[in-house]
């Protein structure tokens, strides 16, 4: 079982308390009626599906209930960082350097 650090509870807790919530940093178009069908399709369905470090959302469902962001390596399942939803997107190069 993965151990995930909840940035709101500030504790590292078992995966069973969390739910996965898709890719992070997907911004809804500010004016949906002005975007093309293709752009709207991309917003709804098209994801990066990376092999390696992936920016994704998790929710501490059975705890504080909060959504937060994480960077997880989809190959090794290792979490590089978890951070609060309103924190800026961390630079991948710095994360990789730190994890070495």
């Amino acid at each position: 079982m993965l151990l995930i650090h909840c940035p709101y509870c500030n504790q590292t807790l078992p995966e069973a308390e969390f739910t996965y919530a898709g890719e992070a940093h997907i911004a809804r178009p500010a004016d949906p009626s002005s975007v093309s069908d293709e752009e709207w399709r991309d917003f709804l369905f098209i994801r990066t599906n990376v092999k390696g470090p992936h920016y994704e959302r998790w929710r501490h469902f059975y705890g504080c209930g909060r959504y937060f962001n994480a960077v997880r390596d989809t190959v090794s399942d290792r979490f590089l960082i978890t951070y609060k939803t309103d924190d800026p997107r961390p630079e991948l190069s710095k994360l990789l350097e730190k994890s070495k």
Binding site: C9, Q11, A16, E17, Y62, G63, C64, G65
Partner: peptide, 12 residues
């Protein structure tokens, strides 16, 4: 064991 005496949590 990680829950201190006098503390608590919501869990599953």
């Amino acid at each position: 064991d990680s829950i201190p005496v006098g503390g608590g949590c919501r869990t599953v």
